[in-house]
Write a protein that binds this DNA or RNA. Structure first.
Lengths: 105, 105
DNA sequence: GGCTACACATAGCCTGCCTACATGTAGCGA
DNA sequence: TCGCTACATGTAGGCAGGCTATGTGTAGCC
């Protein structure tokens, strides 16, 4: 998959992977690999800044915890994050309809 | 639709709209508007450089003609452009499968 | 004479993701 | 105990690709 195709969809991916569960950054990267059968392997330099940005936007909330001596920042969706996810999903459907319509079946 | 979502899919759109017909730049923009029910309104500063780039890549061929006093550069797919289009379509399917799979139904 | 639609083109910006690097813990094998 | 790998978070700066702004010119209408 070409690199640039992800552009504009990163937020949707991060919100979706946190839908209904709490995960820390490293686990988010692994979850995306798993859910995409290995197709998505996002670098930490992409994911961590994005998570902080989404938290600043009020869509995520985080808290530190310690598991076997390692510090983790665990993220979860806020109420408005859930709304944002719904909006992202709607936009994804529109996007695929538009582009798919032009590309043909 | 967010602006950056187009990233990485522009070539596919341009190749697809030229599949099986010859069009000049301005008509390509109109054809994309039409096929997308107005959702895609690409600026000339996006389309014209892209067309020249695709021609340099060997995927398009162009010729000048004059219609009622106006000069037009008419583009058509080359053989390797058709192959590129097929590859772009395959990549689009993969892309939607991967992202759609993460976003959920 | 001025306005709108048609038609092409380029320079430079902007943004958002990626590369590269930095830091630190835990656990295993040699 | 030394080194390696996996785990875990983070930032600075680069880069590429589409967009903004601008320029040029014709045709046709009012």
């Amino acid at each position: 998959m070409k690199a640039d195709t992800l552009r504009g969809h990163l937020d949707a991916l991060l919100l979706a992977v946190l839908d209904g569960r709490k995960l820390h950054g490293y686990a988010i990267i692994e979850a995306l690999q798993l859910r995409s059968d290995g197709a998505l392997d996002l670098p930490t330099g992409t994911v961590y800044p994005a998570l902080r940005r989404l938290e600043r936007a009020g869509w995520l909330a985080s808290e530190w915890d310690v598991v076997s001596g390692r510090k983790r920042r665990t993220y979860r969706l806020t109420r408005s994050g859930e709304q944002a996810l719904a909006a992202e999903r709607a936009e994804w459907r529109e996007f695929t309809t538009v582009i798919g319509g032009v590309l043909g079946t």
